[in-house]
Write a protein that binds this DNA or RNA. Sequence first.
DNA 1: ATGCACATGTAATACGTTACATGATTTG
DNA 2: CAAATCATGTAACGTATTACATGTGCAT
Lengths: 185, 185
Amino acid sequence: MSLKYAVLAALLEGEASGYELSKLFDISFANFWPATPQQLYRELERLAQDGLVEARFVQQERRPNKRMFTLTEAGRADLRAFAAEPPRRPTAIRDELLIKVQAMEDPETARALVDERRGWARGKLDRYERVRGRLLDGRTEEEYLRDAERIGPYLTLLAGISFEEENLRWCDRVLAVLGRRVAAG
Amino acid sequence: MSLKYAVLAALLEGEASGYELSKLFDISFANFWPATPQQLYRELERLAQDGLVEARFVQQERRPNKRMFTLTEAGRADLRAFAAEPPRRPTAIRDELLIKVQAMEDPETARALVDERRGWARGKLDRYERVRGRLLDGRTEEEYLRDAERIGPYLTLLAGISFEEENLRWCDRVLAVLGRRVAAG
DNA sequence: ATGCACATGTAATACGTTACATGATTTG
DNA sequence: CAAATCATGTAACGTATTACATGTGCAT
């Protein structure tokens, strides 16, 4: 149900093809609403039938043909109504690593997995910071937040950043604890 | 696929009925692997057929009958193997509020939603701290981590706590930003 | 005696994943 | 010039969520 509004929100940035949306979902929407290309194509189909987006067929010569999608006024209105309602469902997290940590028997094995997670979190943070730099484009955060038309995308990026920072801190703490255990046991 | 191991991990705490598991998933596993009662019953059925858990039928007089489930040695071994493998899928987060923030038009409306989230995060943190107190049971964290048989549940609880702390910080930051915007606009 | 929470499920539907298909462009 | 990656999708299958169903016990 929410995927619908995630797609409409993505189209606030302007006309896009299914493929472009799937890239956008990979790099930025993934932090709060992951979706595979297949989900997006199906959803776009439905949205077009409901008149919330408009599809424009684009014939291409040296590439597969594509369809470009735009928000309609009805879509914009629907999204606006959604954005004003309190969320129906609480935040859901799916994290395989934490199942493994929960079931942990051997500290050495767990250490390796958490260490791997730490490296991956660092990489994600780096990428976020680069996205942030591109958004700010030379301005300070204060300037940006004062002047920018839409600040939503920046605020969700901040959420992604602070999530990964937290993640990193948790990894460090767990590694410290497990290190002591290995030394003791 | 991972739900299977979440259920096995839950049964590490001892024999439990489907209903008891669904309560456990509500209060603690929910932080990293949410599951509805229906999912759990189906999964337990499968696990029993595969010999990874053992079901014991318990006839009750003044309540509906129930089945109690225990890990078998095969289940324990399967879980152990799972816990040693690196995770296949990255962490997934589903957060409706962030879609609304992403699509935000009016700072006043968004403020109300984020403020609500802030209150809810505080409540969750409080409950976590109480669970933590029960686990520690008078000991300091250091004592607990040195002496406890299984520290996995404590480490996943810490993950839940630091996630909510991060959440709270993000809410405060967003509220500050939106407050300035309302004053300016 | 009415309503809420416990305890257990089934059925219908929605959603997500995996595998496949096709052609263009880039890289070694 | 072969292999990898980009760009765009479709089809089949498996998993999850929602709505419904049923009966008990407890509190007011």
